[in-house]
Design a protein around this nucleic acid. Structure first.
Lengths: 191, 191
DNA sequence: TTGATGGTAGACAGGTCTGTCTGCTAGCGT
DNA sequence: ACGCTAGCAGACAGACCTGTCTACCATCAA
């Protein structure tokens, strides 16, 4: 059953444990034993724990960004529709068993500002914002920048509240609000 | 200069360090030495670190809730105006030196679900939501529940993004969006 | 005077953390 | 046959963690 490479097993285990318990709460020894790898192998692939954390955040970025794009594209070809449809990814995420909020916000809570880990979370949030801004611009919104920022607020608020409120309606409210904001922000106004 | 009681000194030091560096990142020994207190005194007031964490969250709750209420009341007597005005507290918070996001969201990121610390953060978020719901109802909103939830989303999103985006405009965008949502949700419609 | 209260100072135990190091094994290309 | 790469197993060092314990000191009230 040792089909996956050692590096992949380490990263998959870290992905699961870091997200479920928090980064500081998970020791290197636990990751090593759960992934069935030798300590030397671990440190060969990830010379320091922080580098594994960075790889973990890259992995989360790929997955979450992919889900966001998929949900957006599933809403059709119109950028205005995609800006609303992407909130379906939030809904799906919140309903998932073991949902614990945004991995980036959580990581930033544990990392000191200025560290590579913290910088990585900022970069992620800015990438998402840039994507939203692009969609808003292509939707010909009156003020693409403000619309994008506002939708980012709803998205990040939903990611947090979905975990803390134990309220599956948070994602629903976020999508509904997005719909209202988008429909009143684009001239075509297909409410 | 040792005017404050030992308990207060401990709590003040914990408040500063927990918020700035994260809960797990701050050891009991550091709090003890920074607050100039003996170890036995520390454990007399807080038999376990978790109890200090709970006291810390209570303190944050008092301060943040107070700022929220103040900002709301500063906007005038009308509940609809207060629902918008409370976002000034977000703006003030985000501009503060050393701002690191919502202490509750950060604490929840480090605490396992089901623990007292995690439960405390959920309780806080629900208290804020209940307050918003009350204001929305008194503002005669069409759907007070949804309006309250949506504003909570904007507020929590602003708390997160204000720390991660290094973007002082996040709070501004949150308030602007709140204004739009409130003005289109209450019949009086004083846009 | 006595005793309760609240504080200081710091050793100590037992565990966990990250990271290094030594040895051994198996496959694979040349 | 050889050596290279990738991996396994686990001891070890040194720091840091929470929490307990002993011992001493100051103040104030009965």
């Amino acid at each position: 059953m040792t089909t996956a490479s050692a590096r992949d097993r380490i990263l998959n285990t870290a992905f699961r444990l870091f997200y479920a318990r928090g980064i500081r709460a998970v020791g290197v020894d636990l990751i090593i034993s759960e992934s069935g790898v030798a300590k030397a192998t671990f440190y060969k692939h990830f010379p320091a724990k922080d580098e594994l954390v960075l790889a973990y955040l890259d992995k989360v970025d790929g997955i979450w960004t992919g889900q966001l794009h998929e949900a957006a594209e599933a809403a059709g070809p119109e950028p205005a529709d995609q800006l609303v449809g992407l909130f379906d990814a939030l809904d799906t995420a919140c309903r998932r068993e073991g949902y614990r909020g945004c991995a980036f916000i959580n990581a930033a809570a544990e990392a000191a500002p200025g560290t590579p880990v913290h910088a990585r979370t900022v970069a992620h949030k800015q990438a998402v914002l840039a994507w939203l801004r692009d969609l808003a611009a292509r939707a010909s919104a009156d003020d693409p920048d403000t619309l994008a920022r506002t939708l980012a607020l709803l998205l990040d608020g939903g990611l947090s509240d979905g975990a803390l409120a134990a309220d599956p309606e948070a994602a629903h409210a976020a999508k509904a609000a997005a719909k209202r904001l988008v429909s009143t922000s684009v001239p075509s106004a297909a409410a």
